Simulated assay, not measured.
Amino acid sequence: MSSLSSEEIHAQRSDFGLRLSNSMAKYGPLCVGIDPHRQLLTDWGYNVDALGAELYAMRMLQAANGRAAAVKFQSSMFERYGSKGIAALERVLYAARQMGTITIVDCLHGGLPTTISAFADAYFKPGAPLLADAITLLPYYGARSLGGVINDALNNGRGVFIASLTSNQEGASLQTAIRQAGEYKGKTVAFGIASTAQKFNNGINGMGSVGLIIGATIGQWINDSGVDPSKFTGPILSPGYGWQGAEKGDLKTVFKGTKGNVLVTVSRFIAAHGPSISALTEATESVALDIRQALLEASTEGEETDEAD
């Protein structure tokens, strides 16, 4: 990076956000989750092993190609098979890159800066064995503990998604807890995480490269968090739609006023139509249209609220 001009560095650090924004403009706000659950492998007639997971992933990739803005691989579903599973994940990530599909590895890593710096070698740097466009991170060692790995991602034209408002049932009690000290004293934990992430996106024209994870099922308590998704300028990765219970109305509630930066993940709802490629592609196209319409209405509702004010 030291040999690059300031303009080149700025372009590199905003590259993921630009590429994802372009992909979402072209294909819509759907991210296909590729999660080879044991039951799905069995239902599809595959062995519950690394090869079965790889075959499943390749088929889901085919269905997503040209129909979704990105794909997200659940790393634990491959790690369960040890070295063979990791090798399978390497191969499906390579296949996705050959298709030109944006890849997110859902590994939810976190830790001390001295240890998580190794993730850059695994996911971000040229020649990385698990080279991906973005990974997911957990901020509960402190959001600032992620600064080093976030900068490694940005400096290599990659991105991250930081868990902020998750859809698990116990999330609300932790994420809406009030901070007792520090820069965001008196604000919620979630607010501090979102604000720290936003700092990396300040000064970027268009969508930034540092994102948040905000579940689609949290509408009942999002106001308690103090987080306003419409004011966040990075990408927002939103699980919970479909199988986990969120519907179009939930997307409109949580993401009211957002401006094209919400990427909704759907996995099992699509996979339930497999292994037929034609059925998978039809399901992918159908859910993509539903999500696009719901988020368009969410954006419009936000504009109407602003006009009323």
Score class of each variant (00 low, 15 high):
Leu237His: 02
Ile277Lys: 09
Val266Cys: 12
Gly215Pro: 07
Asp224Glu: 15
Leu295Pro: 06
Lys248Val: 08
Ala279Arg: 10
Thr217Ser: 06
Ile218Glu: 01
Ser276Gln: 14
Gly211Ala: 04
Asp224Met: 11
Val287Tyr: 01
Thr284Glu: 14
Gly215Arg: 04
Ile277Arg: 09
Ile213Phe: 00
Val262Ile: 13
Gly215His: 03
Ala283Asp: 07
Gly274Ser: 10
Ser286Gly: 01
Leu296Asn: 05
Ala288Gln: 15
Gly257Gln: 15
Lys259Glu: 14
Ala216Ser: 05
Ile236His: 04
Asp224Asn: 11
Gly242Asn: 00
Ile270Lys: 11
Val254Gly: 06
Ser230His: 07
Ser286Gln: 02
Ile277Asp: 15
Gln220Tyr: 06
Gly260Cys: 11
Gln220Pro: 00
Val227Ile: 12
Gly274Lys: 04
Leu212Met: 04
Ile277Val: 15
Pro275Tyr: 15
Val262Gln: 13
Thr217Ala: 04
Tyr241Glu: 06
Asp290Leu: 06
Val254Thr: 05
Thr258Leu: 12
Trp243Asp: 13
Gln244Leu: 09
Ser286Leu: 06
Ala283Met: 01
Val262Tyr: 10
Ala283Ile: 05
Pro239Ser: 07
Gly274Cys: 07
Gln220Asn: 13
Gln220Arg: 03
Asp224Cys: 00
Val264Trp: 02
Gly226Pro: 10
Phe255Leu: 06
Leu251Ile: 10
Val254Ala: 02
Gly260Lys: 11
Pro239Gly: 10
Ala216Lys: 00
Ala246Gly: 08
